[in-house]
Write a protein that binds this DNA or RNA. Sequence first.
DNA 1: TTCAAAGTTCAGAACGTACTGAACCTTCTA
DNA 2: TAGAAGGTTCAGTACGTTCTGAACTTTGAA
Lengths: 155, 155
Amino acid sequence: MELSARRRYAEEAGVVLAGMGMPQAYGKLLGWLLICDPAAQSGAELVAALGLAKGSVSAGLRTLEASGLVRRVAMPGRRGSFYEMTPDAIMRAAGSEKFTQFRQLMDRGLEVVGGDHAPGAERLRTTRDFYAFIETEMPKLIQRFNDEQRGRSDG
Amino acid sequence: MELSARRRYAEEAGVVLAGMGMPQAYGKLLGWLLICDPAAQSGAELVAALGLAKGSVSAGLRTLEASGLVRRVAMPGRRGSFYEMTPDAIMRAAGSEKFTQFRQLMDRGLEVVGGDHAPGAERLRTTRDFYAFIETEMPKLIQRFNDEQRGRSDG
DNA sequence: TTCAAAGTTCAGAACGTACTGAACCTTCTA
DNA sequence: TAGAAGGTTCAGTACGTTCTGAACTTTGAA
């Protein structure tokens, strides 16, 4: 079986994303949706393109949709839903959820040791401060990126 | 068996970190090293504190050391190595490796579709540009954090 | 209202990987 | 230089998770 370059790319994306803790099948879906033509694909098309079971595609799309990376779109005159990457998919992926989770873990740790000023709390405090910093700065960074993009296309 | 609050915290960190794709045992080690007293612990102490096998602790410390999150320190008058969190552990954890990996994946995708200006390349291009942006901005952000910290302790 | 296509659910198989524990090597002290 | 503590390696097990595939429900066109 000969795989097209695009299909091979989807496989590659699956491997990379799997290495980051995401199920490989979801990585393949994402990779394919990044590169496929047309941009919006039906479930059946995804099944055919990626050689995955219907169940896997269904579960994968649900998850990706829930996390805001993929959205459903309707195609007039055609049955069922179509799926495409959301325009802001990447920014969600870089989103600050993990930073928040870390910051909360550090806050919990500070409770355990007895507050910000307890002996030995420096490690936790610096870490907490850092993640809190990133947590607030990342959205600004994303804003700045959007502004620069807009400026580029307008000017 | 009654677990101390600190020990329970290490378990909690294990769960959280495992949820992000890191082996639970390594998360426990990190959690413990964030909160333990004294800050530097011997391998045997870690085995005892966390109820892990020697082999797991050895492998975990190697990995954490390799990624710069933990470092070995010598304790005068005591055998073997001791391990503690590096002061800049968190910044390494927030490091741009994943952003770089993503950016490279997008560059590969652009090759597949035929370059930045090929039809349908917008998705890949925007994504690539975004990660490239974060890739360069994150180090600056870390720098700014460090400056603010320094200013706080100096002033 | 009927029928086919689309989509969901779920049990089990298949797979990979973390963790253990025992054997082994290394290093340091006495 | 002997012996003990520290540290590493590795094969096997145990565990969890992904993925499949079949049965089922839902949707929408004619």
